[in-house]
C-alpha cells in the first residue's frame, strides 16, 4: 500500500468521526476514569441498599432536625394562643427584609399571582386563575392568614413551606402587603412620597 493511500485512510477516519459538541445520549466515557466515580454517595444519588433507592435518608418520623424545632406558634404557623390568625408581623420589617420578600415573591409567586399581585401570572394563560390581592377581603386579611396560605397551602395552591423558610415566608407576607398598598394608594399618599401623580399618569400612558 502506498504512503499516499495510508495517509488518505487516516484522513478519512478523522473526517468521518463526529465533531465536538454533537448531542449524544449514552453517558460520557473518559480516557482516564480513575477516581471519576468513587465509592461514596453524593447528594440525591442512588443507593440500592435501601428499598426506595435513595442515598439521602428521610428524617426518622417524630424527630426534628437541630435548630428546626417550631415552638413559637405565632412565628411558625401564624396563629396566636387562641388559634386565631395573628394580626401583626412577628418580625421587624426593614428595607432589606422587604426587598428579600420581593425577590422571593418574584421567584415563587409571580408564575400564578403575577408581578402586580393581580392574578395575571403566566399560569393564567393555562387555565389556572389565582385570585387578585387587590380586593377588600384580601386587603383586610390578617397577616397570619396570608402566612398560613404560604405555609399550609389554600384552595388549589400547594404549600410553599419547603421552598421558603420561616423568615422568607414572613418577608413574602410583608411584600404582599406592600403590593396591596401600592395598588390602592390615594393621590395624597403618593404626593406624601414626593411623587407627582400627574407625572406618573403621563409615564404610564407612554
Amino acid at each position: 500500500m502506498s504512503t499516499i493511500r495510508i495517509a488518505a485512510l487516516l484522513l478519512l477516519v478523522i473526517l468521518l468521526s463526529a465533531c465536538r459538541g454533537q448531542p449524544f445520549e449514552e453517558p460520557p466515557r473518559f480516557v482516564q476514569p480513575n477516581m471519576h466515580y468513587q465509592e461514596k454517595f453524593t447528594y440525591q444519588s442512588e443507593n440500592r441498599f435501601f428499598e426506595d433507592g435513595r442515598a439521602d435518608r428521610l428524617p426518622v418520623e417524630g424527630t426534628v432536625p437541630r435548630g428546626r424545632l417550631a415552638v413559637d406558634v405565632a412565628l411558625h404557623e401564624g396563629l396566636d394562643e387562641n388559634g386565631n390568625f395573628v394580626t401583626d408581623l412577628p418580625l421587624d420589617v426593614s428595607r432589606s427584609f422587604l426587598m428579600r420578600g420581593g425577590e422571593r415573591y418574584y421567584i415563587y409567586c409571580t408564575p400564578c399571582h403575577g408581578n402586580a399581585g393581580d392574578g395575571m401570572g403566566i399560569i393564567s394563560q393555562r387555565g389556572l386563575i389565582a385570585p387578585s390581592f387587590h380586593t377588600d377581603t384580601m386587603r383586610e386579611m390578617p397577616y397570619g392568614q396570608i402566612y398560613s396560605a404560604i405555609y399550609n397551602g389554600i384552595n388549589t395552591m400547594g404549600s410553599y413551606r419547603h421552598q421558603l423558610d420561616v423568615e422568607d415566608r414572613w418577608a413574602v407576607v410583608a411584600y404582599v402587603r406592600a403590593l396591596q398598598l401600592s395598588q390602592y394608594a390615594s393621590e395624597e399618599e403618593v404626593r406624601a412620597l414626593g411623587i407627582d401623580p400627574e407625572e406618573l399618569r403621563a409615564q404610564m400612558a407612554e
Binding site: 487516516l10 478523522i14 465536538r20 448531542p23 449524544f24 445520549e25 453517558p27 460520557p28
Partner: peptide
C-alpha cells in the same frame, strides 16, 4: 501526528462530555 491529534481532539472533555443529552 495522527495519534497526538486523536487524543488532543477526541480525548478532550470538549469532545467526550460536551453534547451529553440523556433521555
Amino acid at each position: 501526528t495522527a495519534v497526538v491529534f486523536f487524543f488532543w481532539y477526541f480525548g478532550s472533555p470538549k469532545y467526550l462530555e460536551v453534547g451529553y443529552a440523556p433521555v
